[in-house]
Design a binder for these strands. Sequence first.
RNA 1: CAAGUAAAUCGCCUUAUCGCUAUUCUAUUUAUAGAGUGGAGGAAAGUCCGGACACCGUAGUGCAACAUAGUGGUUAAUGGCCACCAGUCGUGAGAUUAGGAAAAGUGCAACAGAAAGUAUGUACAGGUAAUGCUGUAGUGAAACCAGGUAAACUCUAUGUGGUGCAAUGCCAUGUAUACCAAUGCUUGAGGGCGGCACGCUCGAUUGUUGGAGGGUGGGCAGCUAAAGUGUAUUAGUAAUAAUACAUUCAGAUAAAUGAUAAGGGCUUUUUCUUUUUAGAAAAAGUACAGGAUUCGGCUUAUAGAUUUACUUAAAUA
Length: 126
Amino acid sequence: MKNTYGKTEKLKSKIIIEKLFTEGKSVSAYPLRLVYLKTTFEDSITIQTGVSVSKRNFKLAVDRNRVKRLLREAYRLNKNNHLNNITSQYAFMILYLGKELPSYEFVEKKVNTLFEKFTKAETKNS
RNA sequence: CAAGUAAAUCGCCUUAUCGCUAUUCUAUUUAUAGAGUGGAGGAAAGUCCGGACACCGUAGUGCAACAUAGUGGUUAAUGGCCACCAGUCGUGAGAUUAGGAAAAGUGCAACAGAAAGUAUGUACAGGUAAUGCUGUAGUGAAACCAGGUAAACUCUAUGUGGUGCAAUGCCAUGUAUACCAAUGCUUGAGGGCGGCACGCUCGAUUGUUGGAGGGUGGGCAGCUAAAGUGUAUUAGUAAUAAUACAUUCAGAUAAAUGAUAAGGGCUUUUUCUUUUUAGAAAAAGUACAGGAUUCGGCUUAUAGAUUUACUUAAAUA
């Protein structure tokens, strides 16, 4: 698996997103929160991931874009460390709950702890 | 030189690694790989004006509402822009304007003054049967057939149909012409028509409104070659227009243009060297801000840098 984050890996379907927020479980590592749900996709992709930043916390579009880019980048570079062994299909949504612009280093660290928590929670369940 | 005024321009760069998006070519396992080429702004912002484009029935009359307000020009169009005149501010270069009408009406008016209008006081003079009946003095910008004020109502002139690409057209998927309540069928419910009235018009075999509920919530077109951009010449004081040549320059949709590392610019501060110009080192900073149908303006935000034209009374050198 390469360090890519292309079109097919992005979570786009409105139905799944709605379902994700109503039925999904979550783990958090402040200021990040991961909402996830076991679903089935039509494509052969195992995981689809989206990224979201509240308009309330970041008024300017420039800042929102910046945070989303950082989150995507951290996910792209670190997903193989955590998600290679997953067999069933998942929908992910990563939320940024903070109010200040973070540095990349910080985001990367938090994403790693976030996925560690996630794998722990899921292995316990199954 | 310094301090200013106006106009215009730019607004970080390079390399490496890992990525994103559109598209072209090649290969095949037909959705993946490889290679190539595009990929945010001067304001993309606010959504304040005006157009293009699309639909609503080519959209009537009156009232209301809103906008504009010297003269001329410019444009697809404007409430924008340009030129000139006038007022105000500044030594000046320039800046700025709320620049139509007070003999249509209503309202308002500091200080002074008896009084600023349904008022007539005081002193003196004149006059009468009698009386602020007449004149002068006094206050004030203004004292009665008079003025001021329209960033007060108002009047006048001119203009404005509405809704916005979530418009609109098509394809796919899927369902409920079911249930409950109210009301109506030519003696007309309700809609079209924007705020009201008139007027016009559609209208019931599946009517209309409300309740509760079911389904979709995907894709394609619209969607980027245009009042386009650059250069030059000509006309014009200018806004702008015409001609010639060159050029193709984002199309995403939980929404692409990024991340990391290294180096270099630029600015400021401190320290050191030097007669000065300047040089070296360290630290900090490097703005405002992200397309969403599109174009022309306006408004607001913006670290820092550059260019051109012009001004300077007083003070200082």
